[in-house]
Design a protein around this nucleic acid. Structure first.
Length: 884
RNA sequence: GGACGCUUAGCUCAGUUGGUUAGAGCAUCUCGUUUACACCGAGAGGGUCGUAGGUUCGAAUCCUACAGCGUCCACCA
């Protein structure tokens, strides 16, 4: 039973920092974070933050949106399950720890400590990071299931990774091969294509011949790789070089004898440079492809240390860095009279995403996931393939989105996704770093075995680890117990997960790979929807970065403005896929907003009675009006959240709360008594709808008001058509007329410069409909007027209201102060337009030729529109008659 | 080079299948401290919806071209 309130006990301002921790602890203790009840399962797996340190605004956005979704669905009666976790982020974490150890004085931590000791350091750091991150996630108010926290590098996930590797190996889509890979010389590891970015640089384009006797000049920005050339390629139609095609030369390039075959290949652009291309299969992807087509030899000349390899290059070049070699070659060519020209060109230099070092393309023996290779499906897949049929991973990835089983919000990212997949190359998954899932492959001479344990004497384990995205790709089902059959069966209904919410920047890195893994291993999509949020930028739209010093840290802002304010500032005013500009002022604005909600509620609490809110029935016109408004708002808000329009939902709620509720209804409630129960039920409804947006303040009010249970587990009210009947709507409409009259009066008063504080007098007579409405509801009308410091007095003047204040008298057209003539003109035009439309459509519909040709859909649409237009015309004409 | 996005009030942005007079927040100006709230309230000003065409009874919304800005992808050596 609720108690009456002592207003003095309620603070005037809401102090977030003093209540949030307590509320969070209560939620967690209540078990609300675990999936409850028998409803339909609704799963979100939290994109696991990297264990590299702390959370940033991007994480805060992700948590705000996902918590909003989870809370909403939980209140909708779903078995909502939000699974938290962290990512070991192999290379990122290892690099971070290395840098830390170097700072502490070590020169080369990996060499000094050795694999085992070094890994201990990484594990220790990762554990600390995990604690920090988890604490931050809690601070954001995230209602995730901490009893099921996962880690991409814990034992269960390791089992999943190993199982996946073994399956793919068995199916022939994981293969070891000697191919060109991206090599990061700084961290001494391979990188996937996605971990390589391009940087614009100005490079020198050298045009030259290998030696005096070589007949074709070539151009390159990478002369140092030319020691590895095994061919010169020209376009098949290029007349200049036709006579050389098929011939072999043995030029001496900077002291190294080459074996150059002249080949013809369509990939060569005859317009560029000399129209001839020196082919270096060992250090260029395009050249490597050509080498396959023409059976060319691959001669690596650059080593893992990004220096030229002694013995395969000209004498004096071995051991030189790329820059040194370039300079030396240029001088030699110039001296030998071989250099034709040097020009500056803009070039995209591949650099490592982490560390920023130039990435070299080197041929190496590595493990690959083959995306274009057909394999036999282990189960029915995506409603398209049956068990035992064949498909490629690429086909699976395309089908998942094309079929609509996974929908991307916003839709336009579909195109980006398909484009990326079409150009996808095999995925190099082996890394030469230590921190990560070890590849469970053993070698003995030429023999290879996949096994958890050593197959026996003389077997050596592969020293490499797996790309971090390999384990991350399995996140939706490795967190649900897969591959343990018993465990996974228990959670089977929670997969596919409902929605994957993440930034658009990792659509390729992660989202696409999750689709790959899930469709491959389970035959189903990993999630039904993908919601991509924008990136959080600073006030000027720049990326937040340490070097710019423009980082806003959620952990600084939360104590200052409250978690609810921070969350709102990330959800409101942002649309999917669109970047958000964030400033402290914006957050401050939402702090005010939070406080306003508190004060509205505080006032309602003070007016509320002790009765049962569910027993409230509307009595006055104002009651009918506010309830009818609320039903509409509630419906819209619910629908908008369901369709991921969070900002629009929040705005609609805000407009109701401020304009309708606070500015009108509560002002009336100060005067009209007997609203105890309806106020309580309104407050409940309001808190329920605001809860997913601002969980702390709403839960705090809920408890303060003494409502039953916890708001977090209170169910969202279902809207019944019965509560929205015709009579109710009419009453609401009547109130609306009275309200608009008062609004007009207020404006009139302001225009006349009469102080709002002064009570001014209006006298009303007006048109018959309106006057009779006012007469019937004089009490309500007077109350409304009083709330605006207006008093109504009888008048002798027909058809007009007068506002009297001192010597000022103003007439008011009580029909709603519309300009009748203007209204008439507008309607006349509209009627004419509609009539014209009807005439033209009629003609089309009666045109036999057109009807025969037009598709059914078009005809149907035209007919509907035609009917609509006729109905509209009738309404318009009726209204016109009323105006006279 | 390809793709995508943005261009709407001074600023930040909404505007979901084309449909009353294009909205909100912030900022500005005027007025106001009526015990829910100054982390407040009442009002006001401010937009040829990037430009030019087209489709339509009707376009910020659809189509075409152009301009500026931005992002992603791509091996022109």
């Amino acid at each position: 039973m609720r108690q009456k309130f002592d207003p003095d006990a309620l603070p005037k301002a809401y102090d977030a920092s003093s209540v949030e921790d307590g509320i969070y602890a209560a939620w967690e203790a209540s078990g609300a974070f675990q999936p409850q009840g028998k409803g339909e399962p609704y799963t979100i797996v939290m994109p696991p933050p990297n264990r590299t340190g702390t959370l940033h605004m991007g994480h805060a956005t992700m948590l705000a949106i996902e918590d909003l979704l989870i809370r909403f669905q939980r209140m909708q009666g779903k078995r909502a399950w939000w699974i938290p976790g962290t990512d070991h982020a192999a290379i990122a974490t290892q690099v971070k720890v290395e840098q830390m150890l170097v700072k502490q004085g070590m020169k080369n931590p990996r060499e000094e400590l050795g694999r085992e000791k070094f890994l201990e350091e990484v594990v220790k750091f990762a554990a600390e990071s995990r604690d920090t991150i988890v604490n931050q996630v809690r601070k954001m108010g995230s209602s995730c299931d901490w009893e099921n926290e996962k880690y991409t590098f814990d034992e269960e996930r390791n089992r999943a990774v190993n199982k996946m590797f073994a399956m793919m190996y068995e199916d022939g889509i994981i293969e070891r091969g000697y191919r060109l890979v991206n090599w990061d010389p700084q961290f001494q590891t391979t990188l996937s294509d996605d971990e390589v970015q391009s940087k614009e640089v100005t490079a020198k384009l050298l045009t030259f011949t290998y030696d005096k006797d070589f007949p074709i000049a070539i151009s390159t920005t990478r002369p140092e790789t030319k020691f590895g050339d095994t061919a010169v390629a020209v376009h098949p139609d290029d007349k200049r070089y036709k006579k050389f095609v098929g011939k072999t030369f043995e030029p001496v390039f900077c002291g190294k004898k080459l074996l150059i075959k002249v080949i013809a290949d369509e990939a060569v652009d005859p317009e560029f440079g000399t129209g001839a291309l020196g082919v270096t299969p060992a250090h260029s992807m395009i050249d490597a492809d050509m080498a396959v087509r023409h059976s060319l030899e691959t001669v690596p000349v650059i080593g893992k240390d990004a220096r030229l390899i002694e013995g395969v290059v000209g004498s004096g070049f071995g051991g030189l860095t790329i820059t040194e070699a370039r300079e030396k070659i240029q001088i030699l060519l110039e001296d030998g009279g071989l250099l034709k020209s040097v020009t500056d060109v803009q070039q995209h230099l591949p650099v490592a995403e982490r560390g920023g070092a130039p990435v070299e393309q080197l041929p190496m023996k590595q493990w690959f996931v083959r995306v274009n290779k057909s394999f036999v499906l282990r189960q029915d897949t995506l409603n398209k393939w049956k068990k035992g049929e064949s498909a490629t991973l690429k086909e699976l990835m395309i089908e998942a989105v094309k079929s609509g089983e996974t929908k991307i919000v916003p839709e336009r990212f579909d195109k980006t996704y398909f484009h990326w997949i079409e150009n996808l190359r095999d995925w190099c998954i082996s890394r030469q770093i230590w921190f990560g899932h070890r590849i469970l492959v053993w070698y003995k001479g030429e023999e290879t075995k996949v096994s958890d344990v050593s197959p026996g004497e003389g077997w050596e384990q592969d020293p490499d680890t797996l790309d971090t995205w390999f384990s991350a790709g399995m996140w939706t089902f490795s967190t649900l117990g897969w591959p343990d059959e018993k465990e996974f069966k228990k959670h089977r209904k929670f997969h596919p997960t409902a929605v994957l919410e993440t930034g658009y920047d990792i659509l390729f890195f992660w989202v696409a790979r999750m689709i790959l893994m899930s469709t491959y291993a389970l035959g189903e999509v990993p999630f039904k929807d993908v919601y991509l949020h924008g990136l959080v930028r600073d006030e000027q739209g720049r990326k937040m970065s340490k070097s710019l010093g423009n980082i806003l840290d959620p952990l600084d802002l939360i104590p200052k403005y409250g978690t609810d304010a921070v969350r709102l500032s990330l959800v409101m005013g942002s649309t999917p896929g669109q970047d958000v500009k964030l400033s402290e002022e914006k957050i401050q604005g939402f702090r005010n907003f939070t406080n306003k909600l508190w004060n509205i509620s505080r006032f309602m609490m003070m007016q509320m009675g002790e009765g049962d809110p569910s027993q409230s029935e509307p009595k006055t016109l104002a009651d009918y009006w506010i309830r009818s408004r609320w039903l509409e708002v509630s419906r819209n808000v619910t629908e908008k959240i369901k369709t991921y329009q969070f900002s629009a939902a929040g705005e609609e709620l805000r407009d109701f709360t401020w304009s309708d509720l606070a500015d009108w209804y509560l002002e009336i409630a100060k005067i009209e008594k007997g609203k105890e129960n309806i106020l309580a039920s309104l407050l409940q409804a309001l808190l329920i709808h605001w809860h997913p947006f601002m969980p702390f303040v709403t839960e705090y009010i809920w408890k303060t008001a003494g409502f039953e249970g916890e708001l977090i587990t209170t169910s969202w009210p279902q809207m019944h058509a019965a509560t929205d009947c015709k009579e109710d709507a009419e009453k609401a409409a009547e109130f609306e007329v009275l309200r608009s009259l008062i609004t007009d009066m207020r404006r009139l008063r302001a225009e006349q410069g009469i102080e709002p504080a002064k009570i001014v007098e209006f006298s009303l007579v007006g048109s018959k409909q309106v006057t009779s409405l006012i007469e019937e509801n004089m009490d309500v009308f007077k109350t409304l007027a009083r709330a605006s410091n207006i008093s109504i007095v009888p008048s002798v003047q027909e058809g007009w209201a007068t506002l009297v204040s001192g010597t000022t008298t103003i007439g008011l057209d009580v029909a709603g102060s519309v300009d009748i003539e203007k209204e008439k003109a507008k309607m006349t035009k509209e009627i004419a337009d509609t009539e014209r439309y009807i005439a033209s459509t009629k003609q089309k519909l009666s045109n036999k030729e057109f009807m025969a040709k037009a598709p059914a859909k078009v005809k149907e649409e035209m007919e509907t529109k035609y009917a609509e237009a006729e109905a509209k015309l009738n309404t318009l004409k009726e209204r016109m008659e009323k105006l006279g």
